[in-house]
Each structure stands twice: as structure tokens, then as C-alpha cells.
Amino acid sequence: MNHIKAIISKELKNYFNSPLAYIFISIFLVIANWLFFTNFFLQNQASMRNYFAFLPWIFLFLIPAITMRLWAEEKKLNTTELLFTWPIKDYEAVLGKFLASLLFLAITLVASLSVPITISFLGQLDWGIVIASYLGALFLGASFLAIGLFVSSLTDNQIIAFIIAIALSFIAFIIGENLVLYVLPDSLVSLFQFLGLGAHFNSISRGVLDSRDIIYYISIIAFFLYLNTRQIENRKWK
């Protein structure tokens, strides 16, 4: 546990010691607010439904930027040779890095709370739905983070890690969206809808906290973190 804590604090410091963190948070807030407020006054409703409809797409392109560095840089600089010859378990390193990126995402989401606070001044906002949506966003984001972290462990090139992570996250997201579901045979629709990352987010952000959705996200995260650990152990047997 101490190892994981040490890794989390090292990686978090690393985020905030470089301009990346501030650029990331600014870009995230600008895009999310702009996309939301362009329509907000036309609709004349104190609701964040549109905001959370955009969110997965913003995550898709921005979250890989959080994770691309985490393994690729260590592999490039060979610091993995330090990390894995220190007396720690491989999974501790994976978990530490994942939790650090998750905390960073959580900080970004907290910074975006300015949106619901602004809206609550303008009208009656249903905070229950907003909180559920933020929780859903955290789970969805965590899944993208797990995917991005795994992809980062496959390469020593951050740009490649970024692009492949977008591609893989895109596939995991799009298979459950209407775009794909329309062309599938009826028998497969419910399966793909279940597998896609988006549908569960939609049901959570309607305010329905179903244990199936939460278990789904936790399994996706666990699956990619497991692959990540295996990928790292793989160096030993090559």
C-alpha cells in the first residue's frame, strides 16, 4: 500500500510540475463550457443533459493525453529498470499509475463544477441527476484511463500511445452507439449495447444508479489493468 501511495504522489506531482496539467485542464474546461453554453440559452432549461452528452466525446480525445506518458516515457528513458528492480510488485506500479491518473481526472472534474454552480443560479437544477452524472463521468473516464494506460505500456513512443489509445477507446465507445447499432442484426443489438462504454454512462446520467452499470465499468477497468500487468511481466520472459 505504501508503494502505491508513493507512486501516486510522485505521478501527481509530475503532472502538476509540468505545463501539461494546466494546459489539459484549461482545454478541457474551455471545450466543455463552449460546447455546452452555445446551446444552453437557446434551450432555456436549467439542465446539464447536453453537457453530459458531449462529455464522452471530449473524454475520448483528451483522456489519452493523461495516460500516454505514464509508461511510454519510463520505457523510453529505461527507468522501468529502476522501478522493476525495486522490491515492489508489478501490479502495485500499475495501480499506482492508474490511481494517480484517476485523481488527476477527478481534480479536472471538480474544476468543471463551475458549470452546475452557474446554472443553479439561473434556475432549478436537479442536483441528484448532476451528481449521478458526475459519478458516471468518473467511471467512464476511469475506463478510458485504464485503456490508455494499457496502450501506453505497449510502446515507448508517447504520440503512438496517444493515437492508439484514441482508436481503441473510440472502438470500445462506438460499438454501443446508435451509429453502429442500426446496421447490426437485431439479435446482436442488445449485446453490443451492453459492451459499449456509452450506454452505461447514459443510464447512470439519467439518474439511475444500477449496480449492473457499475459492475460493468469496474470489470472493464480491472480487465485492462490486468492486461497491463501481464504486459509488464512479459519483459521477464521475452
Binding site: 510522485k10 528513458l77 529505461n78 527507468t79 529498470e81 529502476l82
Partner: peptide, 12 residues
């Protein structure tokens, strides 16, 4: 252990 080429977390 001091690995080959002395890798370090240079930003720290």
C-alpha cells in the same frame, strides 16, 4: 542496483 546508462527520473 545501478542499471546501464544510469536511468533517472530527471524531472525530480
Amino acid at each position: 542496483y545501478l542499471p546501464e546508462n544510469n536511468p533517472l527520473y530527471e524531472e525530480m
